[in-house]
Design a protein around this nucleic acid. Structure first.
Lengths: 190, 190
DNA sequence: CAAGAATATGTAGAGATTGACATATGTAAG
DNA sequence: CTTACATATGTCAATCTCTACATATTCTTG
């Protein structure tokens, strides 16, 4: 009768990555960059201790793999208990996510300052989101060539899912930035 | 020659709220709920210490106001230095916000589990976002009756701005949830 | 051969955040 | 009269997160 191990959300993120294949902490840190970073992220300094905790809870285990051309690495894999923990988490309801967005927070005080400041801010971020959107759309195009993506039990379906959310997010953000630019330009004859 | 006081983002959120009018810590906690909560939030246990820090840095000051029908309160107001700090922050560039969204993180592992779990998750969140969207749209309607909202130096312009972002966000989230439901229903003949 | 970049794993300290605990007043409902 | 609720302000401990520090290997570039 052990208490169900308390796993942080980062822990579940790592378990979810490991469910797609065994990886080292370094790989996981990279994996949290590429497609995943827009909905979860962490530094390696957070990942290594978290892996140790997951291992102490017997949700993952590792084997040391010697590499001739690189430093040795610890390759982690899910245990059955880890798989089970991941599935229980998936079945549990999730809070409606709350976001913290410093740009929108600035928008809330933009009335205090010269419209030019807002204009600059919105131009910069329009560019950043346009860039991300283009990148996500490029990936979607590649992804659509697979037919696996339509089967909900395929990991590619999940990649497809989160990519669609990323595109929706970036598109709506970009639209907002452009709307802001219009508004601020229309009035900013200073 | 004092070093420029380091203010947390929460600190700027509070300064931004105080720029709209003097308030108590309790009021600020409420203010961080209503229109603001979708882009920033904090508990009162974070707000009171932060106000103390802002006051130590001379960016705000307070006066105790006795109330006959309620406990006394401390009403905070911006100092000139606080106003200045807020404006400097507005002029500084902002990082492209990264989000942490547990729902999308779950979507990334949904391929591991019965489509029914995903379906339930997406139904729940579709409802939550539809509800928020309706609320924001209701507020927008009220707001559009004001004509102040078109002047970028009016606080109502800023409310308009963040409301538009909120609507864009909720709308794109809702669309995604519904898209997910379609996908999962179409395949989930188990 | 020296410097830099990518791989690889960790620790330490500071700061941010949450949830629980703590206290006090006044009003409204039962 | 008792309970619950809204107002009002705070502290504490645990956890999460970030930045910087620390070390070691191998390959590539100059």
């Amino acid at each position: 009768m052990s208490a169900p191990p308390t796993v942080s959300v980062l822990g579940y993120a790592l378990l979810g990555l490991l469910a797609r294949g065994d990886q080292s902490g370094y790989d996981l840190a990279q994996g949290l960059k590429d497609p995943v970073s827009f909905f979860w992220f962490a530094q390696h300094s957070q990942i290594y201790p978290e892996l140790a905790r997951l291992e102490a809870a017997r949700l993952v285990r590792h084997t040391v793999v010697a590499q001739s051309e690189r430093p040795d690495k610890k390759v982690y894999s899910l245990t059955p208990a880890g798989q089970q923990a991941l599935e229980s988490w998936l079945e549990a309801p999730a809070e409606v996510p709350r976001m913290r967005d410093e740009v929108v927070l600035k928008a809330y005080s933009l009335w205090l300052t010269d419209p030019y400041n807002g204009l600059r801010l919105m131009h910069e971020h329009a560019e950043a989101h346009a860039h991300r959107l283009a990148e996500y759309e490029r990936r979607l195009e590649l992804l659509l060539k697979k037919d696996d993506i339509h089967r909900p039990d395929s990991p590619w379906f999940s990649v497809y899912s989160v990519l669609m959310r990323g595109i929706g997010y970036e598109r709506s953000y970009l639209e907002w930035c452009r709307w802001m630019v219009e508004r601020l330009e229309g009035a900013g004859k200073s």
